[in-house]
Amino acid sequence: MIIYGTALLAACHLLGAYIGDLLGIAIGVKANVGGVGIAMILLISVRHWMRQHGLMTQMTEDGVAFWSLMYIPVVVAMAAQQNVMAALRGGPVAVIAALGSVLLCAGTVALINRLGPQDPDESWKESTAKESHA
């Protein structure tokens, strides 16, 4: 049943959000700490376990894969509700501080990636949710 996959995803999402909130309270931060990341790790582990025990059917996989493919449309909708007006009104402080941070961070990413090991292993490119890259 396709709903099993979606329900599994939802359960991981909710549990991750809950643990993230608890983590935030535990370290005294008014925010969710890593809820999405925890949910992702849960989903990866559950998938691994279910595969090993032969519980993962194609339909169940599809119930998750659909949402992972909906990712880009959701991000487009997210972009469409940014407060672009406020961003432009912020004036020079906002623009300079943001631009400088982005460029400095981009430089650091470039540095780390050049210094790091070059990995010829391309197996990660095998995606489970297939969609043509137009």
Partner: peptide, 21 residues
């Protein structure tokens, strides 16, 4: 659009991408 691109759906879709990790 607010619902579709809000934090709830965004995080749901991000978590789903973990399937490909």
């Amino acid at each position: 659009i607010g619902l579709m691109g809000g934090a709830m759906m965004r995080d749901f879709a991000i978590v789903a991408t973990a399937f490909e990790v």
